[in-house]
Design a protein around this nucleic acid. Structure first.
Length: 689
RNA sequence: CAGGGUGUAGCUCAGCUUGGUAGAGCGUGUGGUUUGGGUCCACAAGGUCGCAGGUUCGAAUCCUGUCACCCUGACCA
């Protein structure tokens, strides 16, 4: 279950002691003697405490007493069938097991079971972040809109930002994240370098007006998130951003490890939030919506947006060099703008297609005056996908977007049927050709490379495209760019400009960028954590500058660190369930043990149940007693469904023999009979393993 | 935002084509029965058929509009 971090950035400080083995339900109980019960409590409710008991209760105590709850006294609305709307396993099971109910699109109630799990997760997060030197605070979910306008995030966030008009007609925002608020706070509170570094976090409800909420708790419009922000005068050195970033990396590793999640830490693009470096923490899960790539030898791991591709073999004759595979032949391909359609029609494989994707550079007026309209044409093999981040990096142009089809058609680009030739004879077009596309002689078959590509007019494609012959220019003059010189190019005006490099998404089997002998492997994941080196984006935009020891005013360097709390709960279910229901890791299960008396009315069974419950709670174990007047069938089914790690069954027969049935959730078979005196030890060791 | 789908009882769904007293299973309540993997029997409660217009003597059903929710894509710190 446990994942090792796949990359390990500067581990300059050992992980906080005790983090990994601290288990609140077991550790505390074994170190500190259980406080004896003042009165033998026949039921979980127990007698009301007397005033003197309350005043003698220690204000400082590290002893964690478990809870004992009765099914009939809490709300666990399990259902046999899930609503029609639920499709993904976590949504179906969290609904059926009575954890959540949908209120609206991407809006959910967290019922008692869910809330218990979420609070356990939050407590783990708090312990690890506090140990890493962060302090918790709470900022409002509702914010004046001007704060977002100040950093232009009202625009960059666009419709994803919830807007709320108040009674005075003023605009407010429901915060999707809190960079602005905390930066504003720091402006008012911190004015000397001596007060830094600082690392502050909160666990708050966040709001994002997602274009399409989906998959239950995995993509919501309202969700629970832990967000942390750190503030520094420098990147390197003691108290620098890198120190805190690394500490947070370790804290995240501890958190997800303690949760019992199978996860990977992968390199990631930092996205619209800005910044220079970032890692995503992904729960490994086949149903995840993100693709991650890993190098099995070096440990390098990255998401598909970020993943570099190692050195690919250079064609023996060089890029673009080679004789045509035949005379250029134009073919009528009506209604086939897509690669798949053409392949089907012409019976060629996508590997023999060239795909040309047109990007528009968002030019400033000055650039426009200098270069005119500017486009970037990215060419990749038909079975590959263009990677926008790599296009930006190779072109050196960070402000691009997919060209608007209508506009591009006006400019003479036959969108859907564009070939590399489209860039010939046009002003201000930069062509970027992926290494796998810039080939004219196929070394593997020892034959001229056969290419099919667009015909540059609607409903036509061409066969036997040859770079040298058909480009009308000497393509071999193009300079191949090694991955490490990304960004050294630049947008050039003029007639035609061509670069060769890595502009596609990495795929399974591509060479690892960190080990020449290794090939990348792919996996799916659900993003549950993300850490960024923000830099000075917000401090500069909002004017958070403070005096350093040289009496120089400098913008504060920031980091930010998020964990999707409610999403993590759902991701855990995605990762760990079977046909009967959820299988919680001990650390996140709403209860550790469910006790199922076959007949709760039977005095012997009831007494045994409550005796065990109190023995366990004194050890810090959270116990749920299924005291419902139900037949055994539904009770067992529900216990499996809600996924509590251990079930103890008290029945007439076994009890007569002085035993109870012990069953571990997810284990095969019927469970085993355990003698009553051995029961607590058996349970404790099961929970500890 | 584009494409597709669905709105009828707490949940799953039938009824709509061809307009005429709103149905089933599960769940719920009561009584009995049963008690180690979703017992069995009986009775009962529960629905302005998403909403608003329209057509009609009469609309869950036909027409128009609208809203909500889901799926695929676009999008996504």
């Amino acid at each position: 279950m446990r994942a090792k971090p796949l990359t390990t950035p500067r581990l300059t400080r050992p992980a906080p002691g005790g983090c990994l083995h601290s288990r609140p339900w077991a550790g505390a109980a074994s170190e500190i003697p259980a406080r004896p019960l003042a009165v033998a409590a026949p039921l979980c409710l127990g007698p009301m405490a007397t005033p003197s008991e309350l005043t003698t209760r220690p204000a400082i105590s590290s002893h964690r007493r478990g809870v004992v709850h009765r099914w009939t006294q809490t709300l666990i609305p399990t259902t046999r069938e899930a609503p029609n709307d639920a499709e993904v396993p976590s949504h179906v099971l969290l609904h059926r097991a009575g954890f959540i109910r949908q209120v609206g699109a991407g809006i959910y109630d967290y019922l008692p079971l869910a809330w218990r799990t979420l609070r356990k997760l939050e407590d783990i997060i708090r312990e690890e972040l506090d140990a890493a030197g962060a302090s918790e605070l709470l900022m409002p979910a509702l914010e004046p809109f001007e704060l977002f306008a100040g950093t232009k995030r009202d625009e960059t966030y666009g419709d994803n930002l919830f807007r709320v008009k108040d009674r005075k007609g003023r605009m407010n925002a429901l915060a999707p994240t809190h960079e602005e608020v905390i930066t504003q706070l720091m402006i008012g509170c911190v004015n000397s370098y001596k007060q830094l570094p600082l690392n502050l976090y909160q666990i708050q409800t966040k709001f994002r007006d997602e274009a399409r909420p989906r998959a239950g708790l995995l993509r919501c419009r309202e969700f629970i998130m832990k967000d942390a922000y750190s503030f520094h005068m420098n990147v390197e050195g003691v108290g620098g951003l890198n120190d805190t970033y690394d500490a947070m990396y370790r804290a995240y590793t501890n958190i997800f490890t303690r949760c019992g999640l199978d996860f990977s830490a992968v390199e990631a693009e930092s996205g619209p939030i800005g910044g220079s470096a970032s890692h995503e923490f992904m729960v490994n899960c086949v149903s995840g919506e993100d693709t991650v790539l890993k190098c099995p030898i070096s440990g390098y791991a990255a998401n598909v947006e970020k993943c570099e591709i190692g050195a690919r073999p250079t064609p023996s004759k060089g890029y673009f060099v080679g004789e045509p595979s035949g005379p250029l032949e134009e073919i009528h391909t009506p209604d086939c703008p897509g690669i798949d359609d053409v392949c089907k029609l012409l019976k060629v494989k996508p590997q023999h297609m060239l795909k040309s994707v047109l990007f528009k550079v968002k030019s400033t007026p000055e650039q426009l005056a200098k270069f005119g309209e500017e486009y970037i044409l990215a060419v990749v093999r038909g079975d590959h996908d263009v990677n926008e981040g790599k296009v930006k990096a190779l072109s050196g142009c960070t402000d691009i977007e997919l060209a608007d089809p209508a506009e591009a058609i006006k400019k003479g680009y036959a969108i859907g049927f564009v070939s590399p030739r489209a860039a010939v004879g046009k002003k201000g077009v930069l062509m970027l050709v992926d290494r796998d596309a810039a080939i004219a002689f196929d070394d593997t078959s020892n034959k001229p490379k056969f290419w099919v590509t667009g015909g540059d007019k609607k409903d036509y494609h061409v066969k036997h495209f040859n770079w040298h012959r058909d480009l009308g220019k000497d393509a071999t003059l193009a300079t191949p760019h090694a991955p490490e010189t990304h960004g050294s190019g630049g947008l050039k005006g003029g007639d035609q400009y061509l670069m060769v490099g890595d502009v596609r998404n990495a795929l399974e089997g591509d060479p690892s960028p960190r080990d020449a002998s290794a090939k990348l492997v792919t996996g799916r994941g659900i993003e549950v954590g993300h850490i960024f080196k923000l830099g000075t984006k917000y401090s500069e935009a909002m004017g958070l500058s403070i005096m350093d020891d040289k009496q120089q005013k400098r913008p504060v360097i920031m980091g930010c660190y998020g964990i999707g709390v409610s999403r993590t709960m759902a991701a855990c279910v995605e990762m760990s369930h079977d046909t009967d229901g959820i299988i919680w890791p001990v650390a996140l299960s709403p209860y550790h043990v469910v006790i199922t008396p076959i007949k709760h009315d039977d005095p012997a069974q009831r007494d045994a149940t409550h005796k065990l419950a109190h023995e366990l709670s004194a050890q810090g174990v959270d116990v749920l007693i299924d005291d419902r007047d139900e037949r055994p069938g539904p009770k067992f089914k529900d216990a499996d469904l809600i996924g509590v790690p251990v079930r103890i069954t008290f029945g007439e027969k076994s009890l007569a023999e002085g035993a109870a049935e012990f069953k571990r959730r997810g284990a095969a078979g019927k469970g085993e009979n355990i003698k009553l005196p051995d029961l607590v030890d058996k349970i404790m060791s099961a929970l500890a393993s």
